[in-house]
Design a protein around this nucleic acid. Sequence first.
DNA 1: ACCTGAACACCGTTCAAGT
DNA 2: ACCTGAACACCGTTCAAGT
Lengths: 217, 217
Amino acid sequence: MWRMARPRKPLLSRARIVEAAGALVDAEGLEAVSTRRLAAALGVSGPSLYNHFRTKDEILEAVADAVSARVDLSMFEPESGRDWRGALHTWAHSYRDALSDHPNIVPVLARGPGRRPAGLRLADAVFGAMTAAGWPPAQATRIGALMRYFILGSAVASFAQGFVDDETAYDPSDYPHLGQAHLLAERRQEVDEGAFETGLAALLDGLSLQYEALPEA
Amino acid sequence: MWRMARPRKPLLSRARIVEAAGALVDAEGLEAVSTRRLAAALGVSGPSLYNHFRTKDEILEAVADAVSARVDLSMFEPESGRDWRGALHTWAHSYRDALSDHPNIVPVLARGPGRRPAGLRLADAVFGAMTAAGWPPAQATRIGALMRYFILGSAVASFAQGFVDDETAYDPSDYPHLGQAHLLAERRQEVDEGAFETGLAALLDGLSLQYEALPEA
DNA sequence: ACCTGAACACCGTTCAAGT
DNA sequence: ACCTGAACACCGTTCAAGT
């Protein structure tokens, strides 16, 4: 047997690490990602990762950024022919879909744009489209932020994921109004989808009211 | 010197542990809470905690529940004389205030009601008040969930906390619309407050529209 | 430049031993 | 019942050594 020090061709790359980390997060959750486990999945030893990322956290940030990067932003381009409201609606769904494909990384994503370029690009696109539609800059910033709250909130505070799968944990006499039916797993996902749709519609209706009250430019 | 095994009076209690853990979370963040550090702050050794809680996670859940428990719910009582919209508005602010007093525990809180009684009591109160006001049960459930998304989202995805305090991290040429001004810490808090207020108003306006369209009971 | 094994200073949790 | 120290199986990260 001979010992490998530096291979002729690098065994790792940032892209390979991010991909493996993403797969591990998806399959087993955030807590399952340790540098040793991740390295093992890549066929190398733990410390090797530090040749490509400075910290484990940077790896997770990169995974989160990769998810953000897959959110469609084309609806904000003028060529899309959508008004601000339609663009926001389509975008919100695209964003939510991207998050629900990778629910385990959402806490990292929610922690803020930080240094993740895709997160900032998102904010920038919304801001640009809203100001182009006639919203005053201050309101455009707020719209970007409040949409983020709602969309990330719906992913992170998901009604469905929140419950323990143990019927006996919830005594109906403690919560007279909450029907036992809500505690069934299938019902919970329905609740989440209905709440997202209802909330998004309310948000956009409310913003439309404000928009109509805007003084002409 | 003599060795202490069991003291005549217990050194610890669930309440003391939760209080110390909450203080540690507030002062130094979630990651700072290790069983050894927390035990040291309480003047005991690490394993002692396991006489009162089954896991470290249960301790953090209890801290989160204590925060939830401090959210005012009196506006949902019929005696408060508030209509559903006014109650929701007041409650949302009370909730947000409770969270912004303890921002570091929010990720735990957001992870869902789980087994935390106060979280479920919240959901139950909103549901009860909305149905009492005439909302159909399915919509009442959705309103509880969507308000939770927005409020927790605003705490967890806070614009203010999200940025790194390093001006050079954000190249303006990468984000043409995002003014450099937004990156100042003071501006960021303004953005969060404005976005919360704008979003809440839009949400309630939108829900009012739906409410008016409801068939008479 | 990029990998390795050894090492450091931590973790959460279990458990036998003490009173 | 409730605390202790020792121990187990982990962590993230650093670093000298190898090619």
